[in-house]
Design a protein around this nucleic acid. Structure first.
Length: 371
RNA sequence: UGGGGUGUCGCCAAGCGGUAAGGCACGGGACUUUGACUCCCGCAUCCGUAGGUUCAAAUCCUGCCACCCCAG
């Protein structure tokens, strides 16, 4: 059972902690302080709707008696994360903004500020671990133990440099323990309520309504472009043979493998198999149509391994909530990878990430390409 | 208005005398730092309509209505 680390005799140094205003980062602050760190809390303003969480982070910091900083990264967040999000959908892919945000915004800002604040380390409230790979000496994110929350998938694109000075105070804990610590510490957010009871954040952070399709439709870039607007308009659902069997609400509403959200005249369960923008039609088929035994992975990054040799045996995670599946990975031309699965996987969605693990450590990862 | 066919939840659709399957859609919940998937729970007292037969009908019979097809 994971224990609270014992207080060291001397201060381990200054550390900059990313704080969202949620339970996890707040408890992380509490733990680091207990451990003797000189903690500074950093909150990022990523988008206009994110202002609310900031006051909670600030409240926690003042309660713990630690310094609090806020940095406005709205501009870069818009330029990097949101625009990629929109562009991806318009290309028919399914982006994962968190994966982009982590290395480019969140951790980038953390390290930038750490430098300024003369902090030797940075920390976040993620549920993950970092290990040094024996042999290569490289850093790799390590999956947390089975049964515990694991957030390594979202951080696979962090660089060696970023991993080298990163600390996760919540390693080895589960959510229940964290809430318990929050309760015992009596941490309270701005409105006076206990942070232990604050619900988990979820869904896309910059689209509080959850209606991402609406968000895309209202983007000026889309609004003023007739051909892009077509992707938001209702169209026909067709089967494998192109036969119309129903209607859909607009191509951007769907992702490969999706089962719901379209009207179709059939008696069987159908899944989205593909999209045809030129005819504004959504191709659907039975479950087995969505199975793939091979994918192309683009823009790879390397963690535990510096490179991948032909036929490397690894375990691939095709989406955050999926279990890893054994596969063989091959380097391809144009800095791409090909993964061949032992057993076919269900609906690898272009735009989503495929992360390769070995012995629970992240070796590499990249984006699933169109097929 | 001659012949044939069909009418069951918003949509597909099973049922063929024994007291309304299932899928989609929809609503609610779990899961979830993306989109999805998955998992729970709910969702026709009623089977176009009016009668009849029967202990018992959505299921059999009759009339009517609606839609479809063929013919003229």
């Amino acid at each position: 059972m994971p224990m609270m680390p014992i207080e060291p005799n001397h201060s381990p140094g200054r550390i900059l902690l990313g704080m969202s205003g949620g339970v996890d980062s707040s408890v992380s602050a509490f733990i680091l302080k207990k451990q003797g760190y000189e903690v500074i809390g950093l909150s990022l303003l990523t988008h206009d709707a994110g202002v609310a969480g900031l006051s909670d982070a600030k409240a926690i910091c003042s309660q713990l008696g630690i310094e609090w900083l806020m940095v406005d990264v709205r501009k870069e967040f818009q330029q990097i994360v949101i625009s990629d999000f929109i562009d991806s959908y318009l290309l028919g892919r399914t982006p994962n903004p968190c994966i982009i945000c982590n290395p480019a915004i969140k951790f980038a800002a953390l390290y930038r500020e750490a430098q300024k604040m003369d902090c030797s380390h940075v920390a976040t409230g993620h549920y993950a671990k970092i290990e040094k790979v024996t042999g290569s000496g490289r850093f790799a994110l390590a999956k947390t133990e089975a049964g515990l929350k694991d957030q390594t998938y979202f951080m696979y694109r962090l660089s060696q440099e970023q991993l080298s000075r990163l600390i996760f105070p919540l390693s080895g804990m589960d959510k229940e323990q964290v809430r318990l610590i929050a309760a015992q510490a009596g941490l309270r957010i701005q409105d006076g309520s206990r942070i232990a009871e604050k619900p988990d954040s979820q869904d896309n952070c910059f689209i509080p309504s959850g209606d991402y399709a609406n968000f895309i439709q209202n983007d000026p870039k889309v609004r003023n472009n007739e051909s892009l607007l077509d992707l938001t308009r209702p169209g026909t659902v067709v089967d494998q043979n192109g036969r119309p069997i129903g209607t859909h609400r607009g191509l951007i509403h769907y992702t490969v493998g999706q089962r719901k959200g379209f009207q179709v005249k059939t008696t069987e369960r159908l899944f989205v198999v593909g999209k045809i923008p030129s005819t504004n039609s959504l191709v659907v088929g039975p479950f087995d149509q969505v199975l793939r035994s091979e994918i192309k992975v683009i823009k790879p990054v390397y963690s535990g391994l510096a490179a991948i040799g032909p036929g490397e045996s690894l375990e691939a995670r095709i989406r955050n909530s999926a279990r890893e599946v054994p596969c063989k990975v091959y380097p391809m031309a144009d800095d791409c990878l090909k993964a061949i699965f032992e057993q076919p996987v269900a609906a690898p969605a272009p735009g989503q990430s495929c992360v390769f693990y070995r012995d629970g450590l992240i070796m590499a990862g990249g984006f699933i390409d169109d097929y």
